[in-house]
Design a protein around this nucleic acid. Sequence first.
DNA 1: CTGAAAGCGCTTACAG
DNA 2: CTGAAAGCGCTTACAG
Lengths: 355, 355
Amino acid sequence: MSPRMSLKKLAAHLGLTEGTVSRALNNYPDISSKTRERVQKAAVQLGYKANPMARSLATGVPEAVAYIMPQSHSSISEPFVSQLLTGLGDALAQRGWDLLVTQSVSAEEEPEMIHKLVTSGRVSGVVLSRPHKQDARIKLLQDAKFPFIVHGRSVRCDNYAWYDVDSKAAFNAAVDHLVALGHQRIGFVGAPTYYNFAQERLDGYREAIVANGLEPDEGLVQITELSDDGGERAAGDLLDSPSPPTALLCLTDTQALGALAAVRSRDLVPGKHVSVIGYDGLRLGRHTNPPLTTMAQPQAHSGRQLGEMLLAIIDGGDPREFQILRNAELLRRKSDGPVWVNKDQTKASLVEEKR
Amino acid sequence: MSPRMSLKKLAAHLGLTEGTVSRALNNYPDISSKTRERVQKAAVQLGYKANPMARSLATGVPEAVAYIMPQSHSSISEPFVSQLLTGLGDALAQRGWDLLVTQSVSAEEEPEMIHKLVTSGRVSGVVLSRPHKQDARIKLLQDAKFPFIVHGRSVRCDNYAWYDVDSKAAFNAAVDHLVALGHQRIGFVGAPTYYNFAQERLDGYREAIVANGLEPDEGLVQITELSDDGGERAAGDLLDSPSPPTALLCLTDTQALGALAAVRSRDLVPGKHVSVIGYDGLRLGRHTNPPLTTMAQPQAHSGRQLGEMLLAIIDGGDPREFQILRNAELLRRKSDGPVWVNKDQTKASLVEEKR
DNA sequence: CTGAAAGCGCTTACAG
DNA sequence: CTGAAAGCGCTTACAG
């Protein structure tokens, strides 16, 4: 490792001034193509790369972007962040930019953290995950006119950039599917609705219940935490109720894992006695008992898209022109099936009997 | 958002020079406590924070560290990187440092990438994952005398810092456990041994086979890729062999997921007809069919430890003093059990019959 | 087309 | 104890 190359050394080596070398390297049009080539060749030969911090300081443009990690609720569904980071990193690498990862200890500190990030001058933009319905972080970023993009949407999402999957449509489709299988009592395992995606999915569920001419029953919806344990508890409560659902629709695959456990622990067979459908399309759903039917999000690459859009916005693009809505698709594995009807006992009485 | 505070403005506001204010902020001893307090109070009031890039440029110490993401082989086991990042971030946050995340497209580019990182001056240290037996990246970092720590170890690991779990001991324990259950033919589902952990675990397995007085049989070891599909194929080959194993020891939980599938698809019951043991202790193992017995790594916090150790090394600590070896523990769920013996047919003939 | 100079926002010897 | 100056490694008007 030679003692780190610098502009000064490179310029001296070439017998030029630093300014000229810098302009040659940055492809300024007013440099003769001859010296430009000479400079660029020498740069690669001597392994010269401009120090990004010095450059950022001089240009005022930090060549980095920050990803705010969501606080994890469950260690299970985190393949997402890894995939997202990979995609983001790819997009940034195209331009030689860096990816910073930050997190806040608590939800309350998030705005404070965003503020620091924005004023710190370390990054040119940020990507947010899992927005709340009313998201203080988004407001902050907007007020500061700071480039950002969100993975998901808040309620009012017309005036910023986002990438999201249509939760409502997905839950419509899931309900339709279950109804087509004969289910009339469909339970919903949800999460606190300050998360906008939790609200959207609940809305999608309710909407489809009505659209299918079923009786809405608030006793069929359970709000719980975003984890397998939460899903297990909520599903258990639903199954133990006087007139239990014959199908369980869960907010996430992680919750659905718990729901499967709840079903099994009552000596019922998921996919036979009780249908269970998750959302996310995590690969690990192939290995559950039984394999989990789920509304699968479109393949990966969301990270890359987010990265590219954010870059475009940093370049001056209008955030409102970067709004992508994708669709989830039903991925049938083995945890759903026709409503269970026994000769002389209904599903409800079967559950009754098990107690 | 007021027009970003600067040292200059703060100094003007206080009627002091930038130098004095800077020293007061950085707790130089030669500043009167009176002005120090006055300055620090004003700084918080006006929300002044030194620009990290400018500061790094001036001090020569980049206040950031890079984590090199391992190329992912499977989207399943990635909860690790998320947890690791969280821990690392926590450790760095104590000092107000940043966490950069990078990745290489291919294994061949890794050294090149490391080189760029080191010479770029953006970070003061790096953390590496999943080293190879002979790891070019480690050599590079050592030659450059650049602070780093590795999550895992290469073969020669006496002269740098690392955090690892004792794979060999874990696989000894797993074999002992299976032998105690009566297993004599224990299959091994592994991965390419350029990964040092793959080699260590294989060594641990072999060692224990011999120590338990069993006949080593290379026909019982299968090397495959680090994914559920890989595990499924390898386990399938083992089960379909003329004299199949009665137990399968897998390099990772992800592979074990595939092994479970292979067992089930042959109408055998994991934990009854064939025992399957994984390694990692992923929570999702609670939801497999049946729940996966595994050698569980010690609880989280490895990220935090790695971060703290790296910081200590950057501060001038001797890397050799930062080497932590932890132990995995057998986490029995439901995929292991006594060797299967039927009245009039052995396990082997049972498999035979299934064909 | 290239050079000389100022500046980005800090820190840190060096004086006094 | 504080001020004045130089410097970190770049970029970018401004001259010529």
